[in-house]
Amino acid sequence: MALAPHPNYSAQVPPRVDDAVDDVALERVMREVPSGALALSLLTVGLLLLAWFLMYAFVFLPRGMVG
């Protein structure tokens, strides 16, 4: 005997609604977001690299030979 569906089952599933995001807006976001992420990545990696080279040039090299 097949189980009868729970009487409240249909009430638990939210009704499907249009999320009101149109394709044009989605495409625009997909174009803009990588540019911002790239700018942030360039800034953070650039600062890290700058700090590394400053330590290398002004601390590590002047301390002289070791081995």
Binding site: F53, Y56, L61, R63, G64, M65, V66
Partner: peptide
């Protein structure tokens, strides 16, 4: 940069 420090400035790990 690490190779340069090793070869030119003789800064190498013991």
């Amino acid at each position: 940069a690490i190779i340069y420090a090793g070869l030119v400035h003789h800064i190498n790990p013991p």
